[in-house]
Amino acid sequence: MSEAMLKVSGLTMRFGGIRALNDISFEVQRGSISALIGPNGAGKTTVFNCVTGFYKATEGALTLHPQAGQSYNIPKLLGEPFQAADFINPVAFGRRLYYKMFGGSHRVANAGVSRTFQNIRLFREMTAVENLLVAQHIHMVRNPLAGVFKTKRFREAEERAVERAYFWLDALNLRDDANRLAGGLPYGRQRRLEIARAMCTGPKMICLDEPAAGLNPSETAELAEMIRMLRDKHGVTVLLIEHDMSLVMKISEHIVVLDHGEVICAGGPDKIANDPQVIAAYLGVADEDEVNL
């Protein structure tokens, strides 16, 4: 293997006076299933938001290598503040201005990182298929005139998109819900639909924020199979946040443990399960009773 899919080094995130993340460093290997765990409020979701470009990291470098030989600097995609040197170098100035105007988290998504959310964010009043079609927006023929006159190119792109949507509905066992409103689906299916939608963008890495929250044990087992399938069959790298330790231990190869915005341990499941610091961090939290390492 060449470089890691995602390299985070020295990531610090401050909200006003709060230091949510403090000098975090870790790597996500290409083709792995990695997990980010830690007690509530440890800063896991904040890491996701920095990686996917919803927050601008206060400090630190985030580098993405979706494919060999391809690399993105995530803070740059979001648009960085101007530096003094830019004002004497028009090329650098122009580039920074371009990213400032047209940059943003959508660029990170287009670079190959997609995500789901801790509290589900589906397009509730649209059908499941439409949710998946929106996810393919950038691959469609977007010219309104082509759409009005239904040109050949437009129709072909639409057909391909619908086909792809059905492919992912099948993969996540949602075919029966294709033409139902997303907001009306049972909770477990909404979670899966969100994963399907993230996969429709054709990502190289998918970030799942507590995908098993609120699922019953059989649904959780099904989800574990699906996450494995995403990696084994479709070759995406998975990074997940999860509280269900049995799920994490079962499917992930590399685990990073966060507590109070710092990495307290990183390694394989065996190492994590026996680490005294991790056990202390978890037992120190009062209402974390479902944890059994």
Partner: peptide, 24 residues
């Protein structure tokens, strides 16, 4: 039934989700 209209409706439903899907 066009990407443009669908993107508008998606934006109404959830702007953050739109951004996570690569929509500007």
């Amino acid at each position: 039934q066009m990407p443009m209209g669908r993107a508008w409706e998606a934006l109404r439903e959830d702007e953050i989700a739109c951004r996570s899907l690569g929509i500007n």
